[in-house]
């Protein structure tokens, strides 16, 4: 079988497999936010950045190549990941202590994993009003990281296209499929895949808030690294 070297360790891969998939399959963690095993690579968050044959590439979107030497868990790459996380934090409004997703949030968990102690950069404090128009689901746009997982899930799995991105650059933002701009005026349902796929705290179920107490949530007891590798095995 073909293989490449990830931080010096051999990783086997099949043709067409991405660096990230092959690594995870072999029990090595490369972080991700916009990647999801059931969807094609998106390549936007850049958390999965690695150095392959001396060049920076997105591990989720780059097919593995025989004999490549790939650097991932180095101080340099982890430093870049930490900066990307800091960018995502200052770009939105993330007040984790009051966020229903806290403990289940991949962004927060990655912040811990990559030892992000401060937000470092100036906060943007964008003005992004919440949308509580839907009977079952609340949208808190303040936390969106634009991974487009909801966009893809709604369009490709739910067959509804409830979400889309508009605007450009730092003004990019999520919109829903209604002239009123309100989720309540779309055909969105709490049973949609899109209702469950957000890695952060944007798309939230109304009603059963804080059903699992803080302290017992997914990433409270274990790191995102351990959790993601466990998911890989199952």
């Amino acid at each position: 079988m073909k293989q490449f070297l990830l931080d010096g360790q051999p990783v086997p891969f099949e043709d067409g497999q991405s660096i990230l998939e092959a690594a995870r399959q072999a029990g090595h963690y490369i972080p991700s936010l916009c990647w999801h095993k059931d969807f094609p690579a998106h390549g936007s968050c850049k958390l999965c950045i690695v150095k392959a044959a001396g060049r920076h590439v997105s591990a989720c979107a780059t097919p593995a190549k025989e004999g490549w030497e790939v650097e991932s868990a180095t101080p340099e790459m982890n430093g870049e990941r930490r900066a990307l996380l800091q960018m995502l934090f200052v770009e939105g409004n993330h007040f984790c202590p009051s966020c229903e997703k806290s403990g289940n949030c991949e962004l927060q968990a990655l912040g811990y994993e990559y030892e992000m102690l401060t937000s470092r950069f100036r906060h943007f404090y964008p003005d992004r009003p919440v949308d509580a128009s839907h009977p079952d689901v609340l949208l808190d746009f303040n936390r969106c990281i634009f991974c487009e997982l909801c966009v893809r899930a709604s369009r490709d799995v739910d067959g509804k296209a409830v979400f889309a991105l508009t605007g450009r650059g730092i003004n990019k933002h999520l919109v829903v499929n209604a002239e009123s701009g309100r989720l309540g005026d779309t055909d969105f349902s709490k049973d949609d895949l899109a209702a469950r796929i957000c890695p952060v705290g944007v798309i939230l179920r109304k009603g059963p808030g804080f059903a699992v107490p803080i302290g017992e949530r997914t990433y409270d007891g274990q790191s995102i690294r351990e959790q993601k590798l466990k998911e890989e095995e199952s």
Partner: peptide, 8 residues
């Protein structure tokens, strides 16, 4: 605005 490094 697609990727984090450039957008932010």
């Amino acid at each position: 605005g697609f990727c984090t490094p450039c957008r932010v």
